[in-house]
């Protein structure tokens, strides 16, 4: 399980399991799960285009991820984010199907971009992944406070002179960057579940923002490692295990909170106004 060719998989999964939940914490906080799903999935079209032109897929991936993010941010300024996200996503996926239609030979590679193929990562991809991942973490660390304030209470942020739309755009760029980091090595599906699952789980378990970030990284690491081990044992796809473990974690945390609330309710005073 820890043979040489497996080592790359462990390293890459660890990098992604650190970067994705940190970005994902804000994805969940802002309720922008759709954007986080759309950008990695749309970016695959870029990879298909790049492979058609004979370029390195990571360039196409990065360009399309960035284009999708900025497009969603700009078009969604006045209207509804979710509608624009859906349209941008289908447009880019449509382009992806066009590129695929022109060059049918890349179908298996595209399959791996969607569902991930972490066991087949090559050594020279790790350096780039680590670099892009560090860039992502740096950007989040720099933006942390304004991003937190805009995410929970945009009115308060505006009153402090924060331009919510700029922060929004900056965050979308970070999502695009994280996409470019993770999708070539683990696939869009894996990336998305590691972003949303652990962060959604962590916020049931703690009330503190920083603790929630750290906790979601821990959960993501456990999920990723357990998944690789399970995939190695069974030979089933890693993507299946990551999504299943992430979902199970979420259900457990929510069930736990539900039980806790159910038990604590009788003792609590009649707080009629607490729902206001």
């Amino acid at each position: 399980m820890f043979a040489d060719y497996m080592l790359n998989a462990w390293v890459v999964a660890t990098i992604v399991a650190v970067v994705a939940p940190v970005v994902g914490f804000f994805v969940v906080l802002r309720g922008s799960a759709f954007v986080a799903h759309a950008v990695p999935e749309a970016a695959f079209a870029g990879a298909a285009g790049a492979s058609l032109l004979g370029l390195n897929t990571i360039f196409g991936l990065g360009a399309f991820a960035l284009g999708a993010s900025l497009g969603i941010g700009m078009l969604g300024r006045r209207g509804r984010h979710d509608v624009v996200t859906a349209l941008a996503l289908v447009m880019l996926l449509g382009a992806g199907s066009l590129f695929l239609g022109w060059s049918t030979e890349y179908a298996p590679e595209i399959y791996s971009l969607l569902f991930g193929e972490v066991l087949g990562v090559s050594g020279n991809e790790i350096g780039l992944t680590a670099l892009l991942g560090a860039l992502c973490l740096g950007a989040i660390a720099v933006l942390y406070r304004p991003l937190l304030l805009t995410s929970v209470a945009p009115e308060l942020a505006a009153a402090r002179g924060i331009r919510n739309h700029r922060i929004d755009m900056a965050f979308l760029v970070v999502v695009a960057l994280a996409t470019t980091t993770a999708v070539p090595v683990v696939g869009a599906l894996l990336m998305f579940s590691l972003m949303v699952g652990p962060a959604a789980t962590a916020r049931c378990l703690t009330d503190r923002p920083l603790h929630a970030v750290v906790l979601s990284v821990v959960i993501a690491l456990l999920t990723a490692w357990a998944s690789i081990a399970a995939a190695y044992q069974t030979n089933w796809p890693v993507g299946f295990f990551v999504t299943a473990f992430a979902f199970a974690g979420y259900l457990l945390a929510h069930g736990g909170r539900w039980i806790r609330n159910a038990y604590s309710r009788p003792q609590a005073p009649l707080a009629g106004e607490s729902a206001a």
């Binding site: 942390y144 937190l148 929970v152 503190r208």
Partner: peptide, 26 residues
């Protein structure tokens, strides 16, 4: 001000954000 009850943010965190919530950097 509508704040999502699911958001992991305590009252004291929000007050602390009043101190320097608009500043970038760690």
């Amino acid at each position: 001000v509508l704040i999502d009850p699911d958001a992991p943010l305590r009252a004291s965190d929000l007050v602390a954000l009043g101190l320097d919530g608009e500043k970038v950097g760690p």
